[in-house]
C-alpha cells in the first residue's frame, strides 16, 4: 500500500512540475493545484498510513497521527486561497497585458480566429481603458 501511495505522490508531482513550467497561465495553475495535492498527501504521509484509526479519542485502539492532519487541513484551505489568488491574477494579467502568457510578453505562436478577435478587442479596450485612466478626475486607481 505504501508503495502505491508513494508512486501516486510521485506521479502527481511530476505532472504538477511539468505543468508549472508551461508558458500559459492556465496550465501553470493546473500544475500548481496538482502539486499542492501532492504536497498535502506528502505531508499527510509523514504521520504514516493508518486504516480505521480516525484520530478521535476512544474511537479505536490505534489512532492515526493527528498533528500532520491538522497541519494539512489548514494547508488545504490556504491552498484554496492561493489557487484563487493566482487564478484571479491570471485573469487580471490577461485583461491588463492582453495575453495569457506567464512572461506577459510573447504572444502564442499560433492563434485561433477567436483568439485573434479577442486580441483585437483587448487592444481596443485597453485603449479605452487607458483613455479613461488618463483623465485625472476619474483615475482612482494608482497608475501601475
Amino acid at each position: 500500500m505504501e508503495f502505491i501511495f508513494a508512486v501516486s505522490v510521485g506521479v502527481m508531482t511530476t505532472a504538477g512540475i511539468y505543468l508549472m513550467l508551461r508558458a500559459q497561465t492556465f496550465p501553470v495553475i493546473l500544475g500548481l493545484t496538482l502539486l499542492s495535492y501532492a504536497v498535502n498527501l506528502f505531508l499527510f504521509a509523514s504521520g504514516r498510513l493508518t486504516v480505521n484509526g480516525a484520530a478521535i479519542v476512544g474511537h479505536s485502539e490505534q489512532l492515526a497521527d493527528p498533528l500532520p492532519q491538522a497541519l494539512v487541513l489548514t494547508a488545504i484551505v490556504i491552498g484554496f486561497a492561493m489557487t484563487a489568488f493566482v487564478l484571479i491574477l491570471a485573469i487580471r494579467a490577461r485583461s491588463d497585458l492582453g495575453n495569457d502568457q506567464v512572461d506577459g510578453r510573447e504572444l502564442p505562436p499560433e492563434r485561433s480566429a477567436l483568439e485573434e478577435a479577442l486580441a483585437n478587442r483587448v487592444e481596443k479596450l485597453s485603449a479605452v481603458h487607458k483613455a479613461r485612466n488618463d483623465k485625472p478626475a476619474r483615475n482612482k486607481r494608482k497608475p501601475s
Binding site: 501511495f5 505522490v9 510521485g10 508531482t13 511530476t14 505532472a15 512540475i17 511539468y18 513550467l21 504521509a45
Partner: peptide, 21 residues
C-alpha cells in the same frame, strides 16, 4: 521540462516511500 519534472517526481516519490516505511 518533462525530464526535469519526472526526475523531481521520482525523487519526491522515493523520499515519500522511504519515509512511509
Amino acid at each position: 521540462d518533462f525530464s526535469v519534472a519526472a526526475l523531481f517526481g521520482s525523487v519526491i516519490g522515493t523520499v515519500c516511500y522511504a519515509m512511509l516505511t
